[in-house]
């Protein structure tokens, strides 16, 4: 372990520390929080059903490249699909779930995110468990070598994730467009409250709108965005877009951790909400 020519104190073993605070709490919460989300999102992604309801589309399935044909529980297509029905050329061994085609981008963005990296290295890999707490292993390669060198693709993930924000914003707009026949679709579309065809706001519309706001705050507060809008320049007074974008992104970036967590939880909840109303367990209330 010791590559240092210095005569250093013996490194401490796993969990050894003189800290007297609850240092284990933070990595435990991150472990449980991230672990729960990974389990839920993986389960939801493999379902291939109950991902849309009326004008609402789960963010875990957006963009809906191909529709698995379960939109109304009748085999008919929902109106969110970009390229129609699930194609025959996709091998049969691929689970017919549209989420599996698109989830790698948001998952990749979060996995390579500077905040999450620090968080999951601690919580899942104990490297370190927490500040000034002993580690379980001697060897260390960091992000200097493969495989963690790949984390440097974060900027490309950011480009794609930013594109997703535009798509999700479009989904939020679509979530205000209700059609008349949904209310009478075999009794499977249960909307509560008043409201007919055309423009309307349901609880789902608000949830999807808040979702895109939170995801936007997280995505555009990213360290890469900060780098591109001014961090890469030594002359802040001569930035092509002026100093405002850099300052705005720096402002978001200061709370990047909070945006990361709130947006993560809300994405999960949005999918869960649409799943519940699609299954008829919850009723989506129309506000108008």
């Amino acid at each position: 372990m010791s590559q240092s020519p210095l005569s250093l104190p013996q490194a401490r073993g796993l969990g050894q520390t003189q800290r007297k605070d609850k240092w284990w709490l933070q990595p435990l919460v991150v472990f449980l929080g991230l672990g729960a989300f990974v389990v839920y999102s993986t389960w939801a992604a493999f379902q291939g059903a109950h991902y849309e309801f009326g004008p609402y589309l789960s963010p875990m399935y957006s963009p809906l490249l191909f529709d698995a044909g379960t939109a109304f529980g009748t085999g008919s297509l929902g109106h969110h699909t970009w390229f129609g029905a699930w194609p025959a050329w996709i091998p049969a061994w691929v689970p017919a779930s549209p989420a599996l085609l698109i989830l790698s981008i948001p998952a990749g963005f979060r996995t390579t995110c500077y905040y999450y990296r620090g968080a999951y290295y601690k919580a899942f890999w104990a490297d370190p468990l927490n500040c000034a707490v002993g580690e379980p292993r001697n060897g260390y390669r960091g992000e200097n070598f493969f495989p963690l060198l790949i984390q440097n693709i974060h900027r490309y993930m950011f480009y794609l994730a930013a594109l997703y924000i535009v798509i999700l914003a479009y989904d939020a707009v679509i979530a205000t467009q209700f059609q008349a026949d949904w209310a009478a679709n075999g009794g499977k579309m249960l909307f509560g409250g008043e409201g007919g065809a055309g423009f309307g706001i349901g609880v789902g519309t608000l949830i999807l709108t808040l979702n895109v706001i939170l995801l936007g705050g997280y995505t555009f507060g990213c360290h890469c965005a900060r780098h591109f809008t001014g961090g890469n320049s030594d002359h802040q007074s001569k930035l092509p877009l002026g100093k405002k974008p850099y300052e705005c992104i720096s402002c978001l970036n200061r709370n990047h951790m909070k945006w990361a967590w709130v947006s993560l939880i809300w994405v999960g909840f949005t999918d869960f909400y649409i799943r519940m109303v699609s299954m008829g367990i919850w009723i989506d209330w129309r506000l108008f």
Partner: peptide, 9 residues
């Protein structure tokens, strides 16, 4: 600098 794994300690 690649050794830094952003623990923020």
């Amino acid at each position: 600098i690649g050794y830094c794994n952003i623990t923020k300690c």
